[in-house]
Simulated scan of single mutants.
Amino acid sequence: MTALGAVFRPQLPPERLQAVVRLADGVGLEELWLWEDCFREGGISTAAAALAWSERVRVGVGLLPVPLRNVAVTAMEVAALHRMFPGRAIVGVGHGVQDWMGQVGARADSPLTLLREHLDALRALLRGERVTVGGRYVRLDDVALDWPPAGPVEVLAGAEGPRTLRLSGAAADGTVLTAATSPDGVRRAVRLVEEGRLAAGRGADEPHRVVAYLLTATGPDAPARLRAELVADGLESVPGLGVAGDAGAVAKAVRRLAEAGADTVVLQPTADEPDPEGFVRFTAEEVRPLVP
Rank of each mutant, 00 (worst) to 15 (best):
V250P: 13
G278E: 14
T113V: 15
D25W: 06
R197T: 04
G196K: 04
V190L: 13
D272T: 14
V155M: 03
A224Y: 09
D221E: 12
L32R: 04
L257M: 03
V131Q: 01
S168V: 07
P220I: 00
A52Q: 15
D275A: 03
V71R: 04
P162R: 02
A222Y: 09
A247W: 12
R107D: 07
G92K: 03
D221M: 00
E117F: 13
D205G: 07
D205V: 00
G105L: 10
R58D: 08
E259H: 04
G245H: 08
V193Q: 05
L226D: 10
A262S: 12
Y137N: 13
A247C: 10
G87S: 10
R209M: 08
M1V: 10
P148I: 06
A249S: 09
I90E: 11
E55D: 14
P220R: 01
L177C: 09
K252A: 15
A247T: 12
A258D: 07
A124M: 08
R197K: 12
V7F: 15
R191C: 04
V190Q: 08
D205S: 12
L34K: 05
G203H: 04
E286S: 11
L17G: 05
A200E: 09
D272Q: 11
G203W: 09
L4K: 03
T132I: 08
A150L: 09
S110G: 11
E15M: 02
R209H: 10
D221C: 03
V190K: 05
H82N: 07
L290G: 01
P162F: 09
D275F: 11
T181S: 06
G135Q: 05
A6L: 02
H208I: 06
T178E: 06
R130L: 08
P292A: 06
E277G: 14
T175L: 07
V7I: 14
V176T: 12
V7K: 01
L267M: 09
V104D: 07
V7H: 13
Y213D: 09
V133Y: 07
A6N: 04
A124E: 13
H95L: 13
D272N: 13
V231H: 06
E41M: 04
Q18D: 14
A260S: 12
G245S: 02
G42A: 03
D37G: 00
V243P: 11
T218N: 11
F279W: 06
E206I: 00
M84L: 15
E31M: 12
E30W: 02
A217G: 01
E236Q: 15
E236V: 12
R69D: 01
L68P: 03
